Amino acid sequence: MGKADADGPGLPDLPPEWGRVVVPNDASALADEAEQVRRELRRRASPRRRPWRPPGLPLLVLLIAVVTTVTGLLTATWPRTGRSPGPVADSPEPTPTQLTDRALPALDLVDAGQSPVPLRGLLPAVVLLVDGCPCPELVADTALAAPAGVTVVTVASERPRAVPTGTEVRALADPAGGLRAFLQQPPRPETATALLADRTGRVVLMVAEAASVSDYHAELVRLAG
């Protein structure tokens, strides 16, 4: 097997370039060398890690697109403080009391010959908007109840409507819809809207759905004062 070393019997022949080999009596004296050997073995056994490289341009563009899309979805679906719980309702129609004491606008209506007729030139007056219903009985009763000096006017949308025979009623039209816009009241089928204004042009009463002359009889009588 080999010859023993001159300084230590029992050791095999070693290469002369290793020099003199000293074997300690206590194995713990070789702990540092053993740890160094183990580290070297682990380093050689573990796979070499690749250095980190930044992603290429196409991958970076794709990543930005994904982040932008997700952010947009979150913004659109995230609940916002103060958001209305439902659709906003339309502005309510003005009540008769909201129109009372307001000044009647200076509107021009038209007669059967399409000649302009200033509304303020008919005051004091009770105006029946009959574009939703001709309501001949209501027109006749109003003309009968109106005191002297108070003009009874019917107003349709496109052209004047025929009035009951034997009544003193001024039939006019409002093609521009200025009076309806002032009242903010849409035409209603089978009923008329009544508007009463005194000699100064002040609105005394507005009845959105006039069923009979009793709905405004008291105010109609006072228009003559």
Rank of each mutant, 00 (worst) to 15 (best):
T71G: 09
G72D: 00
L74M: 03
A76Y: 02
A76D: 05
A76R: 04
A76E: 07
T77A: 05
T77E: 07
T77I: 07
T77Y: 04
W78E: 04
W78C: 03
W78Y: 02
P79I: 06
R80I: 03
R80F: 00
T81Q: 06
T81H: 06
T81C: 00
T81N: 05
G82I: 02
G82H: 01
G82Y: 01
S84D: 11
S84A: 11
S84L: 14
P85C: 04
P85V: 01
G86N: 01
G86A: 04
P87W: 01
V88G: 08
A89W: 09
A89K: 03
D90A: 14
S91D: 12
S91R: 09
S91M: 08
S91W: 03
S91K: 09
P92C: 06
P92N: 06
P92T: 12
P92R: 14
P92V: 04
E93M: 08
E93T: 11
P94E: 08
P94V: 04
P94D: 03
P94C: 07
P94G: 05
P94Q: 06
P94R: 04
T95E: 13
P96H: 04
P96Q: 08
P96I: 09
T97K: 10
T97V: 12
Q98M: 10
L99M: 11
L99R: 14
L99A: 08
T100I: 08
D101L: 05
D101V: 10
R102A: 01
R102H: 04
R102F: 06
A103S: 13
A103N: 12
L104E: 05
P105F: 11
A106G: 12
L107P: 11
L107M: 12
L107T: 10
D108Y: 06
D108H: 06
L109R: 10
V110H: 08
D111L: 13
D111R: 08
D111I: 11
A112I: 15
A112E: 13
A112M: 07
G113L: 14
G113T: 15
G113Y: 13
S115T: 15
S115I: 05
S115E: 11
P116V: 09
P116R: 12
V117S: 13
V117T: 14
V117I: 15
V117F: 10
P118R: 14
L119F: 10
L119Y: 15
L119D: 15
L119V: 13
L119A: 14
L119I: 15
